[in-house]
């Protein structure tokens, strides 16, 4: 059952990304190109996604546990540190270079372009490297 819910969620997420133009790197780069022919579609995607997520999370916050697991895993860290900012900066540079963040990269993999395979494989290499960073002090 967990697997089915996860599959459905991924499917819904991917359809949303694709309808929103996010699986087209040209659209994403167009959003990041604020001094060129700006494409605001990414903003519309966020404007559609954030309020629904916020509303749903508000309702779920009052519940003791999710339907299929023993507890909610709400993020707990509140640290505004070098790791957060440095990681976001490196991610932003990579995002601006090719126009792919992780979701669209995985979804676009099904298009069969070998370049996407290269990107996704290097993305996993990046995650592997990041997992080897020393743990932050508590």
């Amino acid at each position: 059952m967990k697997v089915i819910v996860a599959l459905l969620s991924g499917l819904l997420f991917g359809v949303g990304l694709s309808l929103g133009g996010m699986t087209q790197p040209a659209v994403v780069l167009g959003f990041l190109d604020i001094f060129g022919q700006w494409d605001p579609r990414l903003l519309f995607v966020m404007a559609g996604a954030v309020p629904i997520t916020a509303l749903g999370y508000r309702v779920l916050r009052r519940r003791p546990r999710p339907l299929l697991e023993d507890r909610f895993r709400w993020p707990t860290s509140r640290r505004l540190d070098v790791r957060l900012v440095g990681g976001a900066a490196l991610f932003g540079i990579g995002w601006g270079m090719a126009g792919y963040c992780p979701g669209p990269a995985l979804a676009a993999l099904s298009g069969g372009a070998p370049a996407l395979l290269v990107l996704v494989a290097s993305m996993f290499a990046g995650w592997w490297l990041a997992a080897r960073l020393p743990a932050t002090k508590a």
């Binding site: 990681g87 490196l90 996407l116 990107l119 290097s122």
Partner: peptide, 25 residues
């Protein structure tokens, strides 16, 4: 699905940065 906009070396470098950066952040 749209076409990649940059060549393979850039895709590879971008992938590492996206993976490492999102992992770190």
């Amino acid at each position: 699905i749209g076409l990649p906009q940059v060549g393979l070396p850039w895709m590879a470098l971008a992938g590492v940065l996206v993976g490492f950066g999102t992992g770190m952040g």
